[in-house]
């Protein structure tokens, strides 16, 4: 009987302990996420994406701003609107020839901005899984070496003014 009671008490205490631990863990987790966010000095601004039909390709443009004291490296970009997502660069060849190539590990220096713009860097959306219709938007996430995941939304239109 006594044993049983003490067993019950310890079971209750156990539950409280677990609950407390859980709260502490969750709070700690939120706190650490907040500090992580505060440490992230990378922002994405003025994001837009070209209208394009399903099964074709498109490009996302934006400005990356690195306010931090350290350079960061763009490792990859993720978006669910296309089969493949790559960082590309349009380049000039000779007088008026234009080509396009994939870019790996794009460096964003400390206290600088890097613009993805027509005729230059773009996030290439290859084989769109749906129509990108003007006025709607697309979600994507930049994945940085230090800053981690930076999600953003790009408006579909023919320029950033849209």
């Amino acid at each position: 009987m006594t044993l049983k009671t003490s067993g019950k008490i310890s079971e209750g205490t156990m539950k409280k302990l677990i609950l407390t631990a859980l709260i502490i863990f969750l709070c700690g987790n939120i706190f650490s996420q907040q500090t992580q966010k505060n440490q992230t000095q990378i922002t994405v601004k003025k994001a837009w994406v070209r209208p394009a039909a399903k099964n074709s390709n498109s490009a996302i443009y934006f400005i990356i701003e690195n306010k931090g004291p350290k350079e960061d490296i763009l490792l990859s970009v993720v978006s669910e609107v296309a089969e493949l997502v790559e960082v590309h660069e349009t380049y000039k060849k000779g007088n008026d020839l234009m080509g396009m190539r994939e870019v790996n590990l794009l460096h964003v220096p400390a206290k600088s901005t890097l613009e993805f713009k027509p005729g230059s860097y773009h996030v290439m959306l290859i084989n769109l899984l749906k129509d990108l219709t003007t006025g709607l938007s697309v979600n994507a996430t930049l994945n940085f070496k230090n800053a981690g995941k930076i999600p953003f939304r790009a408006v579909i239109g023919d320029s950033q003014e849209m």
Binding site: R50, A52, N57, H88, M100, S159
Partner: peptide, 13 residues
């Protein structure tokens, strides 16, 4: 060519 996402849409625009 329509697979071109950058330069050709610019010209078309």
């Amino acid at each position: 060519f329509t697979n071109c996402p950058d330069i050709c849409p610019l010209g078309t625009n």
